[in-house]
């Protein structure tokens, strides 16, 4: 993989917005890898948490948005709990998800959800799922 870096990438306004929404300072991340190491869904992410932070430092917001990482984050806060710099990748991913949802990019269609699920699953799963996946 090769990326081209410009000032516009490194000083990306989009990334600054993610920082503002999430309240996280991306520059703090020094890529130790603890978040990826402990993340329960890292294995399924197209871009694992450590690399999410790195890509955003490089201003590659679109690449991260296009990946499934932000939709897979369950918000278990294991990354935050063990981050030596006190960063929350979960908050960064949530900010990006919020941004996408505000633009109307729904992850699930309510009408497609299977009936057994709606009947049996705890309400909290559905409420939570709607908030994470539906605008």
């Amino acid at each position: 993989m090769k990326i081209t870096l410009s000032n516009a990438d490194v000083q990306s306004k989009g990334v600054a917005r993610v920082e503002r929404l999430s309240g996280e300072d991306l520059k703090k991340c020094y890529q130790c890898g603890n978040c990826s190491a402990g993340c329960p869904v890292s294995y399924a992410m197209e871009i694992p948490p450590t690399r999410v932070m790195r890509m955003l430092q490089l201003g590659k917001l679109d690449e991260v948005k296009a990946a499934n990482s932000m939709w897979l984050c369950v918000g278990c806060l294991q990354c935050y709990s063990r981050c030596p710099k006190g960063c929350s990748v979960a908050a960064v991913l949530e900010a990006m998800r919020q941004d996408a949802l505000r633009e109307g990019a729904d992850r699930v269609e309510v009408k497609d959800l299977p009936m057994p699920l709606l009947k049996k699953a705890p309400q909290q799963a559905i409420v939570c799922g709607f908030r994470k996946f539906v605008s």
Binding site: C32, G33, N34, S36, A37, G38, S42, P48, T50, R82
Partner: peptide
């Protein structure tokens, strides 16, 4: 190159979970 998130015991072995 990476940090370890967790260390635990399993069947007499120590499992190191890192990146």
């Amino acid at each position: 190159r990476g940090r370890v998130s967790r260390v635990y015991e399993k069947n007499g072995k120590i499992i190191v979970q890192g990146a």
